[in-house]
């Protein structure tokens, strides 16, 4: 008979390494949890997956009217609809993914206390599941682009990379928040409220160029520390054929990756108490 390896279970403390091999063994669970999140999301709704485009579309109409027509906010010379809709699916994705990911551990308390599996899967599944909505919403962008005769340039090749950065940002923040939320349930309220506020400082509403005009170049780069600042601005640039703001994106990407890595390790560090406080 083969002699399986011996696993030692004992008290852990401090920082933990990440068991990639184990994560691979559980890839099917990851797949089915993601599939579950996709399947249940619009069950028993009238509009079904139409909801994926309703949210960004309605926001676009409101922004175009309030910011474009009434407030005459700058849009970097782009038609207001294009300015907003090129990034609204990405923002909506981030907002929904973070919201679900941040509450994922508390929502799966019954699973966490009854069976073992790598906990990292829990906040990651909604981050992937919400991608479907974004893809659907971006398909709607195509007719808009034709209508306004916007032609992307080679910078569109950056689009997939930027989406990857977007996922990393959502996952990083999600891991931090859900690990905190298991213990401090305040996080649930913080997430909802902060996401609303954050939308207004993300270049979904006004372009980053306004910051530069008002406060100068240095503050523009400082703003890049907010990962969604550089990423959202670059997503728009990549789609409308503008130049990608590499400096801004570089800073945002760095914060995003730092947040992801630290989030993962913070999650692993606190993981051992999840079942006791969930």
């Amino acid at each position: 008979m083969n002699d399986p390896e011996i696993r030692v279970i004992k008290a852990r403390s401090g920082w933990q390494i990440i068991d990639w091999k184990e994560l691979r063994e559980y890839k099917d669970l990851f797949y089915f949890l993601t599939l579950r999140d996709i399947k249940i999301q619009y069950k028993q709704t009238v509009f079904g997956f139409l909801w994926a485009i309703i949210q960004p579309l309605v926001l676009m109409v409101i922004f175009t009217f309030v910011l474009g027509k009434l407030a005459k906010a700058p849009t970097d010379e782009l038609p207001s609809a294009i300015f907003h809709y090129t990034v609204l699916p990405a923002w909506t994705y981030f907002s929904n993914a973070l919201n679900q990911s941040g509450q994922s551990l508390v929502a799966s308390a019954n699973m966490i206390t009854k069976v073992y599996f790598p906990r990292l899967i829990v906040p990651m599944a909604p981050v992937l599941a919400k991608l479907i909505d974004m893809v659907i919403a971006y398909v709607i962008l195509i007719p808009f682009m034709f209508y306004y005769e916007i032609v992307p340039s080679a910078s569109i090749l950056m689009f997939p990379v930027l989406i990857l950065l977007l996922i990393i940002t959502a996952a990083g923040a999600g891991m931090w928040l859900t690990a905190l939320a298991v213990k401090y349930r305040d996080v649930k309220y913080i997430i909802g409220f902060t996401l609303q506020a954050l939308m207004w400082i993300t270049p979904v509403t006004v372009p980053v160029s306004t910051i530069q005009d008002k406060f100068g170049e240095t503050w523009r780069l400082v703003y890049g520390i907010y990962p969604m600042g550089g990423i959202i601005e670059s997503i728009r640039a990549s789609l409308v054929g503008a130049a990608i703001p590499w400096d801004l994106l570089g800073i945002s990407a760095a914060t995003s990756i730092i947040m992801f890595v630290t989030g993962m390790y913070y999650f692993k560090r606190t993981e051992r108490v999840f079942a006791d406080v969930a």
Partner: peptide, 14 residues
């Protein structure tokens, strides 16, 4: 089953 950590001592599982 590794749902929760022990406070002290250890287990070996094969």
């Amino acid at each position: 089953s590794r749902i929760t950590d022990p406070t002290d001592g250890q287990v070996q599982v094969r």
